[in-house]
Design a binder for these strands. Structure first.
Length: 297
DNA sequence: ACTCTCAGGTGTTCAGGGAC
DNA sequence: GTCCCTGAACACCTGAGAGT
């Protein structure tokens, strides 16, 4: 097995033209250099130097291998530089995200991270804000993009963006041509985010205030399930129109004109701050820029 | 799980030798 | 005298195994 000490010796003997000079350069003895070169020659089953009474000379093979040795030393140097960089953005980041962001700007963030920080590996966890907060508290993820402000004083947060909610329905329900009342909507099952979510609770309150005693609300943790159920005309839904832009443009889904709508979803990046949170803070700040650029687009 | 001992491997220094 | 090689002695590190 060839090691870096042997490669160092090889490069310096070739550079200085002498075993003794290389030994002085590397703060060692001439026999040590001799042994390193001998071990290297044995490992590669080739002679690197021609030894003579008037000094040494690189063999043809030695000359050929010298450029490889230089490249290996450069790579070692680069590796040490990265290792010494205290604030380098690298390693694995366990990122939890709400599905709404997956359908809006998360892919732009992943692209940017890949370009700017190639040594960073992102492990993506997509789930509801409720579940992501629990995972953050249990240290199962490092950073969470969730709805609402932090609930624990230990959490740091950064505002990301806001998405308006709207009543959405398939055109086959024929609810989109005129203003619709909550009482009319109450005749259908309402499809929205899961029961623990802020929109679910808001819709329940709105319908109850409109006199619907036992509203039927189908809560789902899966955004694509909500969209599919709405497309099939099972009932109207309450979601962010930003995630179904294509379906709206193609006329597959319509935004309804309803007197009252639950308040917008405000997203924050949340994390537990530690002295080693440099990567997390960097990604959170980048996410804020990406989210705000997406909002202006 | 932790500590201690021991054998084997590796690297270094030193002394000496051969070639020119 | 200078250069490189070889062998002996020593120091240090590591892993395995035994004992607590």
């Amino acid at each position: 097995m060839i090691d870096f000490k042997q490669i160092d010796a090889f490069v310096w003997v070739a550079e200085l033209g002498s075993f003794r000079a290389a030994a002085e350069k590397l703060n060692t003895t001439q026999p040590a250099i001799s042994q390193r070169i001998a071990a290297m020659e044995k490992a590669m089953t080739t002679r690197l130097f021609e030894r003579g009474a008037r000094g040494i000379k690189l063999t043809d093979k030695g000359q050929e291998l010298l450029s490889h040795a230089h490249r290996m030393l450069e790579l070692r140097s680069e590796m040490l530089t990265v290792a010494k960089a205290q604030n380098a953005v690298r390693g694995t980041l366990r990122l939890g995200s709400s599905e709404t962001l997956v359908h809006t700007w998360l892919h732009h963030l992943i692209d940017d991270l890949h370009q700017k920080y190639p040594a960073l590996v992102v492990e993506l966890h997509v789930d509801t804000s409720h579940v992501l907060r629990a995972q953050l508290a249990a240290h199962q993820i490092d950073l969470a993009f969730v709805v609402g402000r932090p609930q624990s004083p230990k959490e740091c947060h950064l505002y990301l963006c806001e998405y308006e909610l709207a009543w959405i329905a398939s055109p086959r329900l024929k609810l989109h041509r005129k203003p619709v009342t909550l009482t009319e909507l109450g005749a259908y099952p309402i499809i929205t985010y899961p029961t623990v979510s802020q929109p679910y609770q808001a819709i329940k309150t709105l319908l109850e205030e409109a006199g619907i005693k036992t509203p039927r609300i189908y809560g789902s943790a899966s955004l694509s399930t909500i969209v599919q159920m709405t497309l099939r005309g099972i009932g109207p839904s309450v979601i962010a129109p930003a995630v179904i832009r294509e379906e709206i443009l193609e006329g597959k889904l319509c935004v309804l004109n309803v007197e009252k709508t639950p308040e917008a979803l405000g997203f924050h990046a949340c994390w537990i701050d530690t002295p080693h949170s440099h990567t997390v803070r960097t990604v959170a700040r980048l996410a804020q820029r990406v989210a705000q650029a997406a909002a202006q687009a």
